[in-house]
Design a protein around this nucleic acid. Structure first.
Lengths: 237, 237
DNA sequence: ACTTGTCAACTAACATGTTAGAATGATAGA
DNA sequence: TCTATCATTCTAACATGTTAGTTGACAAGT
């Protein structure tokens, strides 16, 4: 049987449909696999199977791995090997902190500057969220949730912000996938979004900051609970 | 005469004294040259002279350039060439926004959690700043200023924070070097730091946030004034 | 003058060969 | 049984050859 600890390159998505350079495509495919936990923490990342599966040479795979290392998703051991990074509560705490810093600043600016058109878009997203909660569509709500936060960042007019926010909290994103939808949590989240939306509509900067702080504050305790449930995904001390 | 628009690889620092992989060293050396404006905005970045000057092959230089592109310090045109990126007021505004978001969150946390030992370190830095202002040592003050902010981030206990803060505001760092020390500005800065320090010592989170906001708010108008003075460094519209 | 087209030169991107350091496991010695 | 050594076999890191796309100069046509 296959009791190695290698990643299964077969789980990589087909990169021929993606755009950009080969390195960019390989990066996307690998990132997706890591975030989806198809490549589990601790697994060896070997280039050869990846090259074979994707039909590319080592160069673009090497560049992709370098970027993933930069994102903190893999750890490269010089002259030795590369493995998918473990979860680390320290890193997750830091990710949440960074994420909150950016989101609070974002929502403050948005509350100050939002246009009627933007408010309309946000309102539409809110109604979508309500609809999805009514329909008990948890997966759909997850998407709308992401879009809600993405919209806010878009409204600042800053180009890199969404990407920076994503990058600094990649570990959080990965851990969040393990959080099974707790009964009632979806409705709670909707309430938090609604409070946020109301603060923004009222152009109440302080209230918006407070609500975002509260909203993101819900995350950490829930992730911390994971460590007890799935210790094998976390780094050894 | 040499009227090409190429970078002058001779301005690169010797990498043999640096540590880490060749790629890492080349990255550091090039980043330094770009931030010091030794490689001016718009200049072509050609690999060959860099390889020759540093005595390495194209591979580590390629990786270094990839990272610089990721930092937004160079623009890579596929299949064509690479040039040092121009200043962009949009990017600088975004850099200041991101930096402020992180610094405000940092100072809030520090005001909550600071230990006596940390307070002592910060106090020592404050006294150093005062001393340097008295001595009219502008360059020394610049360093102490950097250290002041770095200390605050260190005190959060978050490993990546200083690096993230630096990365998101690299353009700002580069532009800041052009700001000649306006008479009186150094003393003003010291006053702002003192207000910040007092708020932290009083563990007054809100005051600390307010002072940091005020402190960083001084930056943007001064950089904006640069655009009129040195339009050739800014991107063409 | 103002396109349009061709071509030469250059470059990033990619492929592949080479090197050197780390992990692993077998084996010898205690 | 345990430990130390050494050789094998990995790998990342680096060097270098190859490919294909872009640019810019210049010539020919309008």
């Amino acid at each position: 049987m296959d009791n190695t600890n290698d990643i299964d390159a077969a789980l990589l998505a087909d990169i021929s449909t993606l755009e950009g350079s080969l390195a960019q495509r390989v990066y996307q495919a690998m990132k997706e696999a890591i975030l989806a936990l198809d490549f589990p923490p601790g697994a060896n990342v070997r280039k050869a199977p990846i090259c074979e599966k994707l039909g590319v040479s080592r160069a673009p795979v090497t560049e992709a791995i370098a970027r993933l290392a930069n994102d903190g998703l893999v750890d490269v051991v010089p002259q030795s090997g590369t493995h998918v990074s473990y979860f680390s509560m320290d890193e997750i705490r830091e990710g949440v902190f960074l994420r909150e810093a950016l989101e609070v600043a974002t929502v403050a600016k948005v509350a100050r500057d939002i246009t009627d058109d933007q408010l309309k878009k946000l309102s539409r997203n809110m109604r979508l969220q309500e609809l999805l909660v009514d329909d008990d569509d948890t997966a759909g709500f997850y998407q709308a949730d992401e879009e809600f936060h993405h919209l806010l960042m878009e409204f600042t007019g800053f180009q890199r912000l969404p990407d920076v926010a994503q990058t600094v909290s990649l570990q959080v994103t990965r851990a969040r996938l393990l959080l099974l939808p707790t009964p009632g949590r979806v409705a709670e989240t909707l309430e938090e979004h609604r409070a946020l939306f109301n603060a923004i509509r009222n152009r109440d900067e302080l209230a918006a900051q407070r609500e975002m702080h509260r909203h993101i504050g819900q995350l950490l305790p829930r992730i911390a609970a994971l460590q007890a449930e799935k210790p094998e995904l976390f780094e050894k001390q």
